[in-house]
Nucleic acid binder design. Structure first.
Length: 133
RNA sequence: ACUACCAGCCGAACUAUCGUCUUGUUAGCAAUAACAGGAAGGAAAGUCUGGACAGCACAGGGCAAUACACCGGUGAAUAGCCGGGUGGUGCCAAGCACCAACAGAAAGUGCCACAGAAAAUAACUGCCCCGCGCAAGCAGGGUGAGGGUGAAAAUGUGAGGUAAGAGCUCACAGCAGGUAUAAGUAAUUAUGCCAGCGGGUAAACCUUGUAUGCUGAAAUGCCACGUAUACCAGCGCCUGAAGACGGCCCGUCUGAUGCUGGAGGGUAGGCAGAUUGAUUUUGCAAAGUAAUUUGCAAAACAGAUAAAUGAUAGUUUAGAAACAGAAUCCGGCUUAUGAGCUGGUAGUUUUU
RNA sequence: GGUCCUGUGGCCGAGUGGCUAGGCAGAGCUCUGCAAAAGCUCGUACAGCGGUUCGAAUCCGCUCGGGACCU
């Protein structure tokens, strides 16, 4: 296990095409201030993206703030999910959409992120089980 | 001294751990790794403006549309900036401060509610003369601002003049026009003469002058991948469909495996554009009232492409602060802005 | 990133520069034994600030909000 909690280009969703596909056919669930869109991929690796609607936060500074906090929380806590996917030889695309009207603080985002990640791990496990059956 | 407002300056610093983008070097086939360096603003914002740059066009003419509008300077350019003029407002005045979308109402058209006789042509009422009539009044003629209003009433005051009156005449004052002289680069100012005095509104239409080809980096060029030069409908193939001059018309040019529409298929990756340029800041010197320009020296300048500056802990300051996040790049304008500092204005209190 | 449109009571919506219509909703009154229906009456309405004008919802400038289009 690496000592770095990295989050560079390869681990973010960069392709317009993939994002279109994710939003068209991906599955969704909601956790408190976030909505999560996810889809299992054939290729290995975990990719993520964040978006904040400009209708809710009119100022670019606020949108950047939310995105940074979300990315930071994800970066520090995504290791278990990554390891699980590596074990199962699976890929996953995740997209976070912030939907609350209040500007969040660091505590809130940090506490909510594990909830989402645990749920995702559960989903991955179930998918593997059904495939085996 | 405090408070409020206005203008300007400034736009926290340091350490540790983890992390993002990028440049260079080294290693590696590559993925990547290591080391060194760089990484938001005064407004990056609004998109209100002026350009650079790129593509298409570049025989021309007319109409339309839009913008601007005192003069000179500045600058790549502007609706910016600087200086001057004129006008307005404030202070008793000199003078000072602030403000001005500041061409034309004597080219034409429109509009001016309510009130008022009347909102610009006149009419009504009034005044005067003559005639008729006992009188009220009637008929004819003269006259033009006396008529309570209104934001605005035919330039104002005084005198002459007259039957009554009237810039009808005169004096003083005001207004705008022409012309001459003087000052000034000019706007304009001063004085004289001539002929006048028919409200306001052009941020109503408009007129005059000046400027503007259109589209914006999601422009544009190249490479790679891939498909359908197929199908349907219409028009046309030299008796001319359509396109270009991108608002329209004339006119000119191009023009045939073509053009338009429908349904459908494919791609949506990479490189360039693209970050050092009319650059910014500081210091010194020179020119200029100033904006600004020139020379020398030094320093600085991000470059992403679902889009990068963050998180945690601690310290200092003052409470771990306001407005706020680059997306082609520059000039200006406008708007937002905490604490502190500087200057100005107003108020309150204290002392002299 | 760029180009446009728009803002009138709680809601919808008309409005040549001269007192801001109308409908729905709400409140009160009349009618009724009680309601409904009907009738009458009522209210901080022109997004904000500044300018032009005698006078601005309207014209002009700036700001704020809402919406659409190009891609």
């Amino acid at each position: 296990m690496s000592k770095h909690f990295t989050l560079h280009k390869k681990q973010r969703l960069k392709s317009h095409k993939k994002i279109e596909k994710l939003f068209n056919s991906g599955l969704r669930f909601g956790v408190a201030p976030f909505r999560v869109v996810y889809q299992l991929e054939a290729t290995t690796g975990l990719q993520m993206g964040v978006t904040v609607p400009s209708k809710i936060f009119k100022k670019a500074v606020d949108r950047n703030r939310v995105k940074r906090l979300t990315r930071e929380a994800y970066r520090l806590q995504c290791k278990p999910l990554q390891n699980l996917l590596a074990q199962q030889q699976k890929g996953l695309s995740v997209f976070f959409i912030y939907t609350d009207k209040q500007l969040p603080d660091w505590e809130l985002v940090r506490n909510k992120m594990p909830v989402i990640l645990n749920k995702l791990m559960q989903i991955v496990n179930e998918a593997v089980v059904t495939n085996i059956k």
